[in-house]
């Protein structure tokens, strides 16, 4: 199976949704690192986790990720709708277990950017494009967060190119 076939097998809703692959696969960073374009980090308790951010006692770790994103300037908000001047995140979870985070692109119709596990970066129009997924069949967008948009180019997220 090719890596692209792997991607569509992991996210069966993706192929029916408007999307664009924007990178080659890599296990060097995950979706959490992608929020800050930290392309050499895999943010996860037990792998790499900043000091000062709480670590989970057990399986439920969603609040720890919320705390991490708070440390990056995000605050919880109520909806995923685009707000000019804001950068939003959508945290996917199964109950209180974190699964994924997607970051919103600039513009009301621009959609979202995600790093899919150890596979590709992709741009997807709908949050539901990554639900269900692999062994996390019940993970859905559960928490939304936002911070002021720093205003830098999002070419890497939109097309995979540095512009």
């Amino acid at each position: 199976m090719s890596e692209l076939e792997d991607l569509y097998a992991q996210f069966p809703s993706l192929s029916a949704s408007r999307h664009q692959i924007t990178s080659q696969p890599t296990d060097g960073y995950n979706c959490v690192a992608w929020v800050e374009r930290a392309l050499d980090r895999w943010y996860e308790p037990g792998i790499f986790w900043p000091s000062g951010v709480p670590e989970p006692d057990g399986d439920e770790d969603l609040e720890c990720y919320v705390a991490l994103f708070r440390s990056w300037g995000f605050e919880v908000c109520s909806t995923p709708g685009y707000e000019a001047g804001c950068l939003k995140l959508a945290l996917y979870a199964d109950g209180r277990c974190f699964q994924h985070v997607a970051k919103q692109l600039r513009g009301a119709a621009a959609g979202w950017s995600s790093k899919a596990g150890v596979l590709h970066d992709l741009r997807h129009q709908e949050l539901d494009a990554l639900h269900p997924s692999g062994v996390m069949q019940d993970a859905r967008p559960a928490i939304f967060m936002k911070r002021p948009d720093p205003g830098h180019s999002m070419g890497l997220e939109e097309t995979g190119l540095i512009i």
Binding site: C97, A116, V135
Partner: peptide, 16 residues
Amino acid sequence: AQAALGLSSTRRAARH
């Protein structure tokens, strides 16, 4: 490895 390709958290692989 195949099942975990889409996981952003390896902790979730423990479900497999």
